[in-house]
C-alpha cells in the first residue's frame, strides 16, 4: 500500500538489473490481491492504517529500507517485502540484525501455477506468472507485528542460498521446502528429505502433483457442496452451516 523507494543506489541497481521479470511478476499479483483485500482491511485494520503513517508503517518503511527493496506491502500487521533471489540471505540476515523481528517463525513456499491437478486454481490464470514464491516469516517478540520476506524462483531448477546459518531453525524448514517444492538450497548443511521416504519421487506440494485418492474417487464433501444452490449470498437470516449435515 505504501511504497518507499529505496535510496541506496546499489540496491536499486540490483532490482533493476537482475530482478526485472520477478519485479513485474510480484507487482502483477500483489497489487490486485491488495485491492481485493481492502474491504477486510477497512473493517479490521482501519484504526491503525487509515490517516497518518502509523508507528507500524514507519517501522515497515524502515525494515524495507534495511532490506533494500521497494517491493513491499503492509497489511494484517505484517510487512511483506519482495527481494530478488540473490539478495535472499542478505535480506533475512539484515532483518535479523535489525533486532525488531528476532523470532524465526517459518519458511515455506507457494507454487503459483496456471494448471492445478487438484483443488481450486488461481483467480486469473492468464495473468499469472508461474513461479515458486518462497517466504520466510520473522516476527516480533513484543507485539503481533511481523516481516515476511518473499522471493521468487522459477518452477524448474530453482535454487536459493540457504539461511540455515543465519537461523538454526531454518534447517528443517528448508529441508521440507526442498522435498515438497523441489527448491535447491545452496549451502545447506544436510539437504536430504525430511518427511518423505528416500525413494519418493515428485514434489507433493506443487500444484501439478495429483492426489491419487482423488483420482480414484471424488471427495464426497466436494460433491455435496456442488449439489447445493449456486447462490453465493443466501438471505441474511440464514445461519451458516457446514453444508454437510442437511
Amino acid at each position: 500500500m505504501t511504497d518507499s523507494p529505496s535510496d541506496t543506489p546499489d540496491s536499486t541497481e540490483d532490482v533493476v538489473d537482475e530482478a526485472v521479470p520477478e519485479q513485474e511478476a510480484s507487482a502483477a499479483v500483489a497489487e490486485p490481491a491488495v485491492a481485493e483485500e481492502s474491504p477486510a482491511v477497512d473493517t479490521e485494520e482501519a484504526p491503525e492504517d487509515a490517516p497518518a503513517p502509523s508507528e507500524f508503517d514507519v517501522l515497515a518503511a524502515r525494515v524495507a529500507d534495511v532490506v533494500g527493496s521497494d517491493q513491499w506491502t503492509a497489511e494484517h500487521r505484517t510487512v511483506k517485502i519482495s527481494v530478488s533471489p540473490d539478495r535472499w540471505k542478505e535480506a533475512i540476515a539484515g532483518v535479523k540484525a535489525l533486532g525488531e523481528f528476532p523470532f524465526f517463525s517459518w519458511l515455506s513456499a507457494v507454487d503459483w501455477a496456471r494448471e492445478v491437478a487438484v483443488g481450486d486454481g488461481v483467480a486469473a490464470p492468464d495473468d499469472l506468472d508461474e513461479r515458486l514464491e518462497v517466504m520466510c516469516r520473522l516476527s516480533s517478540m513484543k507485539d503481533d507485528t511481523a516481516v515476511t520476506i518473499v522471493t521468487s524462483v522459477p518452477r524448474s531448477g530453482g535454487s536459493l542460498e540457504s539461511v540455515a546459518t543465519v537461523y538454526g531453525g531454518a534447517d528443517w524448514h528448508e529441508r521440507e521446502c526442498y522435498e515438497m517444492f523441489g527448491i535447491d538450497f545452496v549451502g545447506h548443511p544436510n539437504l536430504i528429505k525430511l518427511y518423505l521416504p528416500d525413494a519418493f519421487e515428485g514434489h507433493p506440494l506443487r500444484k501439478d502433483y495429483p492426489l491419487l485418492s482423488r483420482e480414484v474417487k471424488p471427495w464426497p464433501g466436494t460433491v455435496d457442496v456442488e449439489a447445493k444452490p449456486t447462490t453465493e449470498n443466501v438471505e441474511a437470516d440464514t445461519l451458516a452451516s457446514d453444508g454437510g449435515d442437511s
Binding site: 490481491a33 481485493e36 477486510a40 494484517h76 516469516r137 511481523a146 447445493k228 453465493e232 445461519l239
Partner: peptide, 19 residues
C-alpha cells in the same frame, strides 16, 4: 453464537497469517 455468514463459504482473495 454465530455471525451472519454466507451459506457457502468463499474466502476473498488475500493472504493472512494468524498465530
Amino acid at each position: 453464537l454465530q455471525a451472519k455468514v454466507p451459506k457457502i463459504i468463499k474466502v476473498p482473495a488475500g493472504e493472512v497469517y494468524v498465530r
